[in-house]
C-alpha cells in the first residue's frame, strides 16, 4: 500500500512511498528514522497525533516533524 510520507531529515521528503500492509506507526518510524528518539518528533497521521501501535492504511498521510523549536537567551525557559 502507499502512504504520503513527510519529514525534514536528510534531503527532506514529501512523497508517496510503499509500505507493508498494516504497518504500525512505531515500526514505520523505526524503519525510516534509524537510531532516532521518537520523543524528539511529533508523529501524525492525517494531521492527527497517533498511538505508536496504530496501523497505517492505504492513502494515509504520515508526517514526522520536529518538536521544541525554541530560541532563548541562556537561562530563559521557553514554554510553548
Amino acid at each position: 500500500m502507499r502512504v504520503l510520507y513527510i519529514n525534514n531529515d536528510g534531503g527532506g521528503f514529501a512523497d508517496f512511498i510503499n509500505v507493508p500492509d498494516g504497518q504500525a506507526v512505531s515500526d514505520f518510524f523505526a524503519e525510516r528514522m534509524t537510531d532516532e528518539d521518537a520523543g524528539e518528533y511529533l508523529i501524525r497521521v492525517n494531521r492527527q497525533p497517533v498511538a505508536r501501535d496504530q496501523k497505517l492504511r492505504d492513502g494515509d498521510r504520515i508526517s514526522i516533524t520536529p518538536v521544541k523549536i525554541e530560541g532563548a537567551l541562556a537561562g530563559e525557559i521557553p514554554s510553548a
Binding site: L4, A14, A80
Partner: peptide
C-alpha cells in the same frame, strides 16, 4: 517573551502539511 520564543509543535506540523499542500518541498 522578551527573550525567548517557542513554536507550538502541532502548529509546526500543520505548517508542514500546509506547505506540502501548496506543492512546496521541505527544503
Amino acid at each position: 517573551s522578551v527573550a525567548s520564543v517557542a513554536f507550538d509543535d502541532a502548529a509546526v506540523a500543520d505548517f508542514f502539511d500546509d506547505q506540502i499542500d501548496q506543492s512546496r518541498r521541505p527544503e
